[in-house]
Write a protein that binds this DNA or RNA. Structure first.
Lengths: 156, 156
DNA sequence: GGAAGGGTTCAGAAAGTTCTGAAGATTCGC
DNA sequence: GCGAATCTTCAGAACTTTCTGAACCCTTCC
């Protein structure tokens, strides 16, 4: 149940799944380190050691994970190394990020509709597309709100 | 408002957005043809002409769009060419397909938790991940049900 | 039943993505 | 301020994905 090798395999498998979800390969592997480490925080050196990759790769991955808000830099306690950790709301954040696609789809549908005449079959098809993404777009805040409530009932 | 060139640009832009959403490039461009055509159905030849790509590419794209249920083959009325069109529930289908990732995440989290001890910080992090995706997984059917109701109130 | 159009497949070319390694920038400790 | 450790950047190598083109198969029509 607590075997290091087994745990490592699970981490790499999870990284592959994260890749399916849209993250870049190295960013996914880096995130897996943040999830599986038994320390509270990690440094870039830790990540490079754990994954056996170059410092350059780690730098790029950490930068991208920071930019989407999945990890955070901790106020360095007088150390030379920067410490990072997974953010508490990482998963809700990841979900929200992925849903910017919904916005893009909605916008694309709307501008496309504007290029069609009302009696064109394309007008009807694009309107259906717009309606669906408009619906989704409305529902996302509701969904995240329900998640917060759900969390409140089962406090960590 | 009905300029062919403008419409074509919109189609290609929409195709790029679909690519962001996880579709392959050529499949996305093909889907754009299905959306923007002023005919009720299209043939593979139509698509190849419109996009200026090889018959091989079109064959592959159409196959993949069929497999995920975004388009359908029509009962051919004694013609040599196969006719296809966008399915009515294409967008809900696309959304559902993309949410298989949620299932994969949930499974990955669960198997990962099994490799950690209860007092390991990783255990807590992975549990948070599982809780979120379990929540999402529960909510998807509800969401699609609400979409159907929403559609019923505004009939096409 | 044979010819021709339409569709499929797949090897290889083209394009795109990702990682490394090395050089440069930055920051902390002294 | 100087030196050392850490981090960043970026050109190019390695790898992956995607598209084409040509050969092959299947079906329709005469």
């Amino acid at each position: 149940m607590n075997d290091r090798h087994e745990q490592w395999q699970a981490a790499e498998r999870l990284a592959l799944t994260l890749t399916e979800g849209g993250l870049q390969r190295m960013a996914a592997r880096t995130l897996a380190v943040f999830l599986f480490t038994d320390a509270e925080t990690v440094t870039m050196g830790d990540i490079a050691d754990q994954l056996g990759v170059s410092a350059g790769s780690v730098s790029g991955s950490v930068k991208s994970l920071l930019s989407v808000g999945l990890i955070e830099r901790l106020p360095a306690p007088g150390s030379r190394r920067e410490h990072y950790r997974l953010r508490e709301d990482a998963w809700a954040t990841l979900f929200s990020t992925q849903n910017t696609v919904v916005q893009l789809m909605l916008q694309a549908a709307e501008t496309s509709i504007a290029t069609t005449a009302a009696n064109d079959p394309a007008h009807r098809r694009l309107s259906q597309m717009r309606d669906f993404y408009q619906f989704l777009f409305q529902e996302i805040p509701t969904l995240l709100h329900r998640w917060q409530q759900h969390q409140a009932t089962r406090p960590g």
